[in-house]
Each structure stands twice: as structure tokens, then as C-alpha cells.
Design a protein around this nucleic acid. Sequence first.
DNA 1: TGCGAAATACTGGTATGGTAGTTGACAGAG
DNA 2: CTCTGTCAACTACCATACCAGTATTTCGCA
Lengths: 225, 225
Amino acid sequence: MTSSTDTRRKTADIIFGALRDQIMSLELLPGTKMSEAEIALKFGVSRQPVREAFNLLGNLDLLDIQPQKATRVQRFSLRRIAAARFERLAIELEVARSACRNWSSVHAPGLEACLSAQHTAVETTDAKLFHTLDAKFHRLIFDVAAPPLPFARVLEKKAQVDRICVLSLKDAEEMATLVADHALILDGLTRRDEAGLDAAIRLHLSRIDRTIAAVRAAHPDYFDD
Amino acid sequence: MTSSTDTRRKTADIIFGALRDQIMSLELLPGTKMSEAEIALKFGVSRQPVREAFNLLGNLDLLDIQPQKATRVQRFSLRRIAAARFERLAIELEVARSACRNWSSVHAPGLEACLSAQHTAVETTDAKLFHTLDAKFHRLIFDVAAPPLPFARVLEKKAQVDRICVLSLKDAEEMATLVADHALILDGLTRRDEAGLDAAIRLHLSRIDRTIAAVRAAHPDYFDD
DNA sequence: TGCGAAATACTGGTATGGTAGTTGACAGAG
DNA sequence: CTCTGTCAACTACCATACCAGTATTTCGCA
């Protein structure tokens, strides 16, 4: 077999990853105009790989490519966010239902451990750790629901929402609320109560609406609409 | 230069659309090896726009691009199909629930007209017309559920399944079954019976499993796994 | 001074040449 | 006959140059 560790990445992928991280971390603010030539110069490569990276980022709605005019870091859009939110809600609901049907007590320890770790993250007000544990929690449920299914691709639209969450405060009170939601979700799973689980998921995902509204009030110039 | 129709679309998009249609219609069979140079020659353009089109098709899992080796028309994969099916089921279920809540009698005529048109399509065994009407039916429900949301993007993964359906027989009996499913769904909507609607959607989408199994039995060489 | 038109300085898109890497076949050795 | 090493013919990828639009500036004129 050829190399097990396929470290051979195309330069276009490297550019793509670097720009994506900068956009997602808001190191590059929404509305910033990007230049193929400028980026190419900065990375010391030709314009072609930069161009490919731009197209990839455009497909993820992270760049707004206006032919012959300019390409800018995509602003937030209530429309796009609503679409991503709807899609994620639909997926998470069905994932939860599937997990409910596949549930057995062997799955409990992992989720309980993740939940208790979240409690400590709240006590220390460690927002970054909490974000990681939050993602892990949803991931664990996904694994219960449909192990063979690819996780990343299904929720790749999540980027539209994740980017905005960087601006949220993530204070202790808000994190505590989210942890309580998680506890409710885990409770619904253990009791195999599909109706209760459905309500818990909807409540949990509805939390981001307030976050979005708050960010929009604080940074209206980051929004398209 | 192909300035016959001075389209605003860039040539890469034209190549992309043409190849996508050929792949979706199975004019290009799974496993067929593609060559940038060959396609470029055939369309009378340079290799660069062809390359971009390849990348776009690769993002949709319609092409299997193996760097420095070859790029082939993606074979069917039970894994990918299962993922696409799961995703679509989740979306359609939530769409139906949302439509159920937004339902009013003004929506009935459009769906009923589409349904009756489907009946005539079955009587004339017009598979192509039926396929169009089937898509329209689901689209109409989507419009009831969430008018401002983009329809195409949400279900773009549908391509993974649509391509395989070209190989299905679409005989009168099968079409009649699907129309009956649609009637059941419309009935659930008009009665605003969420539980019944849920069951009807799940039954309807489960029909494709038999189709996939039949195609896999008839053409095992079109599959990866 | 106000305003419109032309020149200019960008942008993204395309064509072409060259490079690195993989595959497959074929010739020669065991 | 089998195995192996070398070479030729592909492949995708990157760099460079050029083209075609669009926004902005600037200069001439009223």
C-alpha cells in the first residue's frame, strides 16, 4: 500500500485551511475584501491555488465571490443562518430519535462523563473548553444514532452558525443553561422518551436565536440583512 | 472561444452543468475515467475551466478525483447513499411538520392538482413526467413549510439518490404505489395529523431501499461496496 | 465650482507551458 | 516461466502570461 499517512497535501488545501481558520475565528472580519494576488504573495505561491481555495470557501458560503468586482469575507445573513439552523435542527432531531431507538445502558457512561466535565467547565468559566465539550456531546449522540455515517459532512453547514458564536459572550449563566439542556437531553435518552427528547432538542437549539439577535445588535455592520 | 451565446456564466459553469447532466442521466457510467485534456478538447476550451468543473463535481461526490492518478465518475456507494437518505429523511420530516403547522386550506388546491396530474402520468406510464411531478410535489410541501428558505441547497445531496433512480424500472405499479404514498401525505397534511404524516413520510422514503437493492443486484460493478 | 466622460488601476477568468508523481508495459536476469 | 528494474506515457497540479470586464480616479469643459 502507498503511504499510510498521506501528508502530501496540495498547496490549495493548505491555503484553504489557513483562510478558513482565519475566517472562522473572525481574524478576518466579515466584509473584508480579499485579493487573489495579495494572498498569493503572502503565501509565496501562484494565484492558481489561491483561486481554488477561494472557490472552496465560496462553496461553504464563507466567501462572497463577485466576478470581476471583488471577493469579500461573507457577511452574516439571517437567511443563511435560518437555513442552516433549520437543517441542523432537522438532523439533530432525527439523530436523537435514532439514538433513542439504539439506546442501551452501555452508552450512558460516556455521555455522563462528558456532562460532568461540562459542569466543571462552567465552574471555571472556561468557554473554549466548554465549546469543545459541547461539540463532543452532540458527537457522542450521533455515534449512538448512526455509527457508520459520516459526521463531519452532515453538519458542515454548522460553520455558518459557529462563526457567529465566537462573538457571543459565553458567560457562566449562559453556559449553565446549555449544560442544563444537555442534562435534559440525556435524561430523555435514558428514559427513551422520544417526545420529551424532541422538545429538549428544540429548546436547546432555540437558544442560539438570542445569541444571534444580540450579536446583530452589537455588530449590525457584520450582517447582510 | 465559445462566444456563440455570450452567456454571463463562466465556461467552468457550463462544463460543470453539462458533465453533471451526463453523469446524472448515466450517459457517463460510474467508473468511467475522465481526462481534463480530453474534456477540454471536446468542449474546445482550455484545461483550467475543466479542472474547476471537476473540483465542483468532486465536492458533490459525483467525481472521484485521485491526485496524480486519475479521476473517474464516482461509483455508487451504500455508505454515501445511506448518509444522503438519512439526511433527506430528516429534512423531509421536519419540513412536513413545519408545513403541518403552517397549513391552511389555501394550500390544498395546488397539491391536489399536482396529485391528480400524477394519476394521469401513471395511467399513461409517463415515467419522466412522473419524476417531474414527484419533485414538484415535494417542492410544494417545502414552500408551505418555509417559504424563505432556499430549496435547492438543502436537498443538493439528493443527487446521490436521484442518479440511481434512473436505473429503476418505474413501472406503472411502482408509480401507483408512490402516488398512493403522496395521497397519504396530503391526507396527513389536511387533517394536520403530525404522527400520521411522520409515518407516511418514512414509508414513502423507505421505498427507495428496494430500488437500490434491485439496482445493486443488476449492476454490481457500479458499486464501490 | 460642478459634472460628465475618458483613462487608469484594479478585479476575476482563461490559455498555455512545464513539473512532479503514478501506472503499466516491456525487456532482461534468475 | 517468474520476478524485477527501468522507461515511457499518462495523470493532476502549479506557475506565468494574457484577456475581459468593473470601479475609481482624473481631467476637460460648461
